[in-house]
C-alpha cells in the first residue's frame, strides 16, 4: 500500500476556519436579538419573493 493510500481522507478540523467567540455563540441563541434577526430575515425573503423574477 502506498503512503498516499495510508493517509486517512477524514478531515478532523479546518485550521484556517474562524471559530465563533463565546459572545457570538451567545448572540446566536439570544431570543431577543434573534427575534430582530428573524424579522429582518423574513423581510429579506419577502423582498426577494416580491421582486421575484429578473425580467
Amino acid at each position: 500500500m502506498s503512503e498516499i493510500a495510508k493517509q486517512s481522507p477524514v478531515i478532523t478540523h479546518y485550521p484556517d476556519a474562524p471559530v465563533p467567540t463565546r459572545f457570538t455563540r451567545w448572540n446566536r441563541q439570544n431570543p431577543v436579538l434573534q427575534f430582530g434577526k428573524f424579522v429582518m430575515a423574513c423581510i429579506n425573503i419577502m423582498m426577494m419573493v416580491i421582486k421575484g423574477h429578473e425580467k
Binding site: 477524514v10 478531515i11 478540523h13 479546518y14 484556517d16 476556519a17 474562524p18 471559530v19 465563533p20 455563540r25
Partner: peptide
C-alpha cells in the same frame, strides 16, 4: 468549515 470545526464534525 467554521461550523464543522466549532461542532467537532469530521468530513470526507
Amino acid at each position: 468549515e467554521s461550523l464543522f470545526t466549532e461542532r467537532g464534525v469530521h468530513s470526507i
